[in-house]
Design a protein around this nucleic acid. Structure first.
Length: 290
DNA sequence: AACGACGTCAACCGCCAAACA
DNA sequence: TTGTTTGGCGGTTGACGTCGT
């Protein structure tokens, strides 16, 4: 027999998350790490489906998330990657540290699509839009492009069995678009920059004046500009400062700065996170409340 | 000030591949 | 080997905010 069902979906809450629920989920994950999501709602005292918890965490609560609009460079990367990968948002997101597939997908649909159209570029083909008869041709073109993409994808799949990103990038760089090479070169640089210390213009998930997740070696210098916290989640951040001791095995509370209330988490305490946050690439982190 | 249209984005839905018993 | 569950993904929805009239 297989495993137990994810959730019975009876009496489970749906819709926007409340600050209280967020707090419970954050508290649980920080205490226990990410284990099996099915068990999370029960153990965390949430009337939510495990899937919903996972989504909330990965798309909104994860402390390594960047918030706010995508920078121009990130936008450019998304466009380039979309030209090569199509609507494979998770793949695209994997090249943009701190961004989720959902976020990129939304940004694409709401901002980039329009921008490209304004510029006379078809967001599907990434080629100049035909002059006149645009609307009539679009549906036909969509179908055509879809077929082309499918064919291309099939060819890709046939020609390679490896699926890791490095291989894909190599393939992409060998692909038809020469100009994209430049973008990937700069992306590597950017990724490196991001992984080693969060880029300067990043907008952290948690309001900087409330909670900081910063490299221990470099005190936070967040210059967030226009963080737009969602309605339901703005209050929980304030509540976070009242969270109980998370019980990090080797948390160095003694070294927490009284002014900033930073809690220093050494790398060897991050076992719980290894699966998902290895990309943080930091020697240690400070998770604190201002 | 009131209303409707439009834009944004968090959350849900359904499907699929991988993992598991 | 097979059936079931889980986690992840992309598409879609709907609530909420903003803008224009």
């Amino acid at each position: 027999m297989g495993r137990q069902p994810c959730c019975d979906k009876v009496g489970l809450k749906k819709g926007p998350w409340t600050a209280e629920e967020d707090k419970k989920l954050i508290n649980f994950i920080l205490t226990n790490g990410q284990c099996c999501w099915r068990a999370v709602p029960k153990l965390a005292g949430l009337l939510r489906c495990g899937k919903s918890c996972r989504l909330r965490w990965t798309n909104y609560l994860r402390p390594d998330l960047k918030r706010g609009l995508l920078s121009e460079h990130e936008e450019k990367m998304v466009i380039d990657l979309h030209a090569q990968l199509g609507n494979r948002w998770s793949k695209i997101a994997s090249h943009l540290p701190g961004r989720t597939d959902n976020e990129i997908k939304n940004h694409w649909n709401t901002h980039i699509k329009k921008k490209l159209k304004k510029m006379g570029i078809d967001p599907l083909t990434h080629k100049p839009l035909p002059i006149g008869n645009e609307i009539e041709n679009q549906s036909q073109q969509k179908q055509h492009v879809q077929n082309d993409q499918e064919q291309q994808q099939q060819q890709e799949e046939q020609s390679c069995t490896a699926t890791d990103d490095t291989f894909e990038i190599d393939q992409i760089n060998e692909g038809a678009k020469v100009e994209d090479k430049v973008e990937f070169v700069t992306m590597d640089h950017d990724e490196h920059e991001l992984l080693n210390g969060f880029c300067i213009d990043e907008v952290p998930l948690i309001e900087p004046h409330e909670i900081h997740l910063v490299p221990n070696c470099a005190p936070s210098s967040s210059t967030s500009s226009s963080s737009s916290c969602s309605n339901s989640s703005s209050n929980f951040l304030e509540d976070l400062q009242y969270l109980p001791d998370f019980g990090w095995p080797n948390c160095d509370y003694s070294s927490s700065n009284n002014n900033n209330n930073h809690i220093i988490i050494n790398n060897d305490t991050m076992g719980l996170w290894d699966d998902d946050f290895s990309s943080w690439g930091q020697e240690s982190w400070a998770f604190g409340v201002l």
